[in-house]
Design a protein around this nucleic acid. Structure first.
Lengths: 158, 158
DNA sequence: CGCTGGTTTCAGAAAGTTGTGAAGTTATAG
DNA sequence: CTATAACTTCACAACTTTCTGAAACCAGCG
């Protein structure tokens, strides 16, 4: 546990590796990298210039990435008082709640699957296969709420 | 519930819409479309030519897609006896179990996060933030097993 | 054994994605 | 109000991904 001094090279490696995994999970590359950069900042916030410097990218790229991140609620943007500089901050330490939130996606999936059952016919083998899939994702959505409740309980009990 | 007759146009719409949602969830487009095509086939299986015709794509594209789908265990390939034609079949009606399986991914993520804690230092704010994230994903992995058990129980009890 | 229907491989064309530089906009300081 | 620091937008270039056609391969049949 080398916690006396940050090894910035190791931090960079972590940033890139973690970003790749977010990409694999569906995030675009630049937002993922910016997000990872904020995650390793000690107070969870950086200015645009600091992000650009750490990642070696242009202001334009930072601008696009933070717009996306703010939109999905992973960061918030603050104005530094007495300056026209902005800081981008992890929206909360429970960012993973946002990240793993799949409500809207699951809802849409269910409605698509319902239309699929209609299209192939409810009584057919294909219809039943699709209906079961819909049931599964509905179940998943219900379970997710409970899982998050359990997490909060476990977490506060430490 | 129009289940007297398949409306092939509506089926096609479903196939494309469902495939798009799989893409959004991280699957490549062509495998997603092929998979969706199998899902709406009454016996859950099609020949290469049938897939190509429904999706209007070349044999080469089908070949690449089924290779991928077989590799991740979503379909199996069968040889039609007395023919050199192959059929591709949904590996099981519980395909969603494979699809939602995230074990390997979560494990890798945890190890990345552990290296991140090391890089920034365990006692620092960033270190604690990253460690909490790692805890969360570890929790998620444990919960997932239980969720799937509950699903099987609920499902068999119908 | 060679012919043929079917699948696979591969190089390249087409499409899509991403990040940059440069111009444009906005807001604060003076 | 004007000057200017900082962010944003946009057209384009670089890169990546994806699909196709053509050729190669393979297995069963005659």
């Amino acid at each position: 546990m080398a916690d006396q001094q940050r090894d910035e090279e190791a931090v960079d490696r972590f940033v890139e590796r973690f970003a790749s995994e977010l990409v694999e999970a569906g995030m675009q590359r630049m937002p993922a990298r910016v997000f990872a950069a904020l995650l390793v900042a000690d107070d969870g916030a950086l200015t645009s210039a600091e992000v650009g410097e750490r990642l070696k990218v242009s202001p334009a790229a930072v601008s696009g990435a933070v717009r996306y991140l703010a939109q999905v609620g992973l960061i918030s943007r603050e104005r530094e008082p007495g300056s026209r500089r902005e800081r981008y901050r992890l929206h909360s330490d429970q960012w993973y709640e946002t990240f793993t939130r799949r409500d809207r996606f699951l809802t849409r999936l269910e409605s698509t699957l319902a239309s699929g059952v209609d299209a192939v016919g409810g009584g057919t083998p294909a219809g039943e296969r699709i209906a079961e899939t819909a049931d599964f994702f509905a179940f998943l959505q219900r379970e997710w709420t409970k899982t998050m409740e359990r997490w909060r309980a476990e977490r506060s009990g430490r």
